[in-house]
Design a protein around this nucleic acid. Sequence first.
DNA 1: CGGTGATCATCG
DNA 2: CGATGATCACCG
Length: 223
Amino acid sequence: MNAVQKPENTDELMQRCYAIAGLTIKEIAANIDKVPEKLIHHKGWFGQLIETVLGADAGSNPTQDFSELGIELKTIPLNDELYPLETTFVCITPLTNVSGMTYENSNVRNKLSRVLWVPFSGSRDIPIPERIVYTPFLWSPNSAQDAALRTDWNEHMEKIATGQIDSITARDGEVLQIRPKAADGKALTQAVGADGTLVMTRPRGFYLRKCFTSEIIRQEYKF
DNA sequence: CGGTGATCATCG
DNA sequence: CGATGATCACCG
């Protein structure tokens, strides 16, 4: 299989999803050219494989994976009880020029407005090629979920706007937390300082807690 | 560097 | 032993 064209519409995208449901990662990868064997144990590799198979745009632009369809793609590893093994990265946390931002126009809300979840068995005792993709599904936040995200986002951004970024830890936020997000500890970016000037700090990202994503999974799979 | 895709390693 | 804080590979 060569480069997959991006899907024309949501139906086409979902048909591709149903075609890989129940397959192992090895079986899915077999349909794609140029899968470096050495990368098969690598973080994030599976997410990029799924992007390729489904025809998402490549690159690192901070937009939705299927921008024409308004859909963001997220893979998520689940244990045997279908509980998430990892938190879910949403997007980079803005640390400057935050005064005019609202939750309504935030990158968090835009990305999470419509998500194509691709769960897969992620237990570490299963070799990665043998792990199985569960049935993907489309999701949008219900009013309670949206409100929970809004509350956390507002609290986080209030601190950032008032120069308290370095007082935020991953313990803050009921469902949306902020954690470092960088290649290593040497990466620095600008942030609003205590006196309103710019200071350097570690880049941060928004992450969804497992309790939040597990509810999404439970809703969809009805257990 | 700063985004994308995330998981890893350590510690409480 | 799970969550936090750190880190990995790749791209433009």
